[in-house]
């Protein structure tokens, strides 16, 4: 104990641990306990069904693709918001937070209404043979929606603090715009882009409300893993199956957390050696 000068140590840590214990630690322990009780074989028996494996494949596959799309779109949006001045820029900047603040169920039904066969966009896409609602494309779209602000908000402060002198130096040395982008800018932004990717990925994997309406939850096709957990708890009272699947999702979240902590350290070192 280095210094304990100020009062309130017991009260503040006590309250923190009490709330954390009741709402987070105890539930976490219960999940781990239930999953461990199953044992590796029992756990695998719960996971290795066609329905569960299909949902995991969709959840992780679509989330990875969505996070990749978010990185591209997010870089474009963050770049434009930081580097250019145009009418409605502040409004656009504020709008980026919309997926953070809009309740997921509301986003879900709004996307579904837009892309349903008779929806405003759905009816325009149908002649081209593109079905978004109730397909995997819909799952992807909803995940792109919820992940976008993570990439933009991660990139913005870094782009703001990054001086343009490096790009200018590259320019005076005769680098073309594409060279300046791919060989100067992207390597500098790489750790930040990866952090944004990881954040968007974590959100997309666990997302429920935005996805379940537009996905249509078709067996083996558009069921995401969180939907199966809800099904197991809500209508089948299969808590062991839900815990087995929940443990997989939790492990993925923890893995991403560790990866992000590691990324942050890398970014800091990167900034120092630069």
């Amino acid at each position: 104990m280095a210094r304990q000068v100020l009062p309130g140590f017991r009260l503040s840590t006590g309250y923190t641990l009490a709330v954390l214990g009741g709402s987070v630690l105890l539930p976490l322990a219960a999940l781990l306990w239930t999953a461990c009780e199953l044992g590796p074989a029992g756990w695998w028996a719960q996971i290795a069904t066609r329905r569960v494996l299909a949902s995991l494949r969709l959840s992780f596959g679509a989330a990875m693709l969505a996070a990749t799309i978010d990185v591209v779109l997010g870089l474009l949006v963050a770049w434009v918001l930081v580097r250019y001045r145009f009418a409605f820029r502040r409004l656009c900047d504020a709008l980026v937070d919309l997926p953070f603040a809009l309740p997921t169920a509301v986003a879900g039904i709004a996307l579904t209404a837009l892309y349903a066969p008779h929806g405003w966009l759905g009816s325009r896409l149908a002649p081209f043979g593109i079905d978004v609602a109730y397909t995997r494309l819909g799952v992807l779209l909803a995940m792109v929606f919820v992940g976008l602000p993570f990439v933009v908000r991660t990139l913005q402060p870094v782009l703001e603090s990054m001086e343009s002198d490096l790009e200018e130096a590259a320019y005076t040395l005769g680098a073309s715009p594409s060279q300046r982008f791919f060989r100067v800018l992207l390597p500098l932004l790489a750790p930040t882009l990866l952090t944004g990717y990881a954040l968007a990925l974590a959100r997309a994997i666990g997302e429920y409300g935005s996805v379940v309406f537009i996905s249509g939850n078709r067996l083996f096709k558009t069921e995401i893993a969180p939907y199966l957990i809800v099904q197991k708890v809500d209508s089948q009272y299969d808590y062991r199956g839900a815990a087995a699947l929940g443990a997989v999702m939790l492990a993925a979240s923890l893995l991403l957390l560790v990866a992000m902590a590691w990324l942050q350290r890398w970014t800091r070192r990167w900034a120092v050696t630069r």
């Binding site: 709402s23 999940l31 974590a202 666990g206 957990i229």
Partner: peptide
């Protein structure tokens, strides 16, 4: 970082 659905399920446990 935890899926809200997993959070709800853990509370039921």
């Amino acid at each position: 970082s935890v899926s809200p659905v997993v959070a709800g399920m853990m509370l039921i446990l």
